[in-house]
């Protein structure tokens, strides 16, 4: 009986932590993203079909997101051959409001993957479409544009990408 009670309590705690994942589900097609890059050219998520794509939702005002950028850079550099072979890509989607801050952040972390933003902060349509309630947030999608992982960070993210790409060879 006590065990059941403990289990229910833990379920409630973990459930509230993962409330973010309620709308977005693994196996579902990822909602389309169509946003301008730093030069104002619109890029779409669907144009990346055929690749494993890590969509990183971030902003320069989000300290944990900023902290994560060098880790993403390491992942991107490690898999540069798969990037060249058009098997892997990172799509950074910024919820910044200031283009200047966004631009400086991209330069500071030498981000060389795709970067998109409508510069609408939390009012951005992508925040709604992806039911984002907190940053950093990310989604991994497969070659068909289906969601295969939600909100992995640190070693879990690195391992997932390593495993996925190593099984592709």
């Amino acid at each position: 009986m006590k065990l059941k009670f403990c289990f229910i309590v833990l379920l409630i705690i973990t459930g509230s932590l993962h409330a973010q994942d309620e709308i977005l589900k693994i196996g579902q097609p990822a909602p389309e993203i169509s946003l301008p890059d730093l030069n104002g050219n619109t890029t779409t998520l669907s144009s990346l079909k055929g690749k494993l794509v890590l969509i990183d939702f971030w902003a320069t005002w989000c300290a944990p997101c900023v902290k994560e950028q060098p880790e993403l850079k390491a992942i991107y550099d490690k898999h540069r051959n798969q990037v060249k072979a058009e098997k892997f890509e990172i799509l950074g989607v910024s919820l910044d409001k200031s283009k200047e801050h966004w631009q400086k952040g991209v330069a500071r972390f030498k981000i060389n993957w795709l970067q998109l933003s409508d510069l609408k902060y939390w009012k951005s349509q992508v925040a709604k479409d992806y039911a984002i309630t907190e940053l950093p947030f990310n989604v991994l999608i497969d070659e068909q544009g289906k969601i295969i992982a939600i909100n992995l960070h640190g070693a879990a993210l690195q391992n997932f990408i390593n495993n996925y790409l190593s099984h592709q060879k």
């Binding site: 939390w122 009012k123 925040a127 984002i132 309630t133 907190e134």
Partner: peptide, 17 residues
């Protein structure tokens, strides 16, 4: 407590635009 999206925008409270 969470952010301006969850605690304001999503509740359709008045925004600047």
């Amino acid at each position: 407590s969470k952010n301006i999206k969850a605690n304001w925008i999503d509740k359709n409270y008045p925004t600047s635009d």
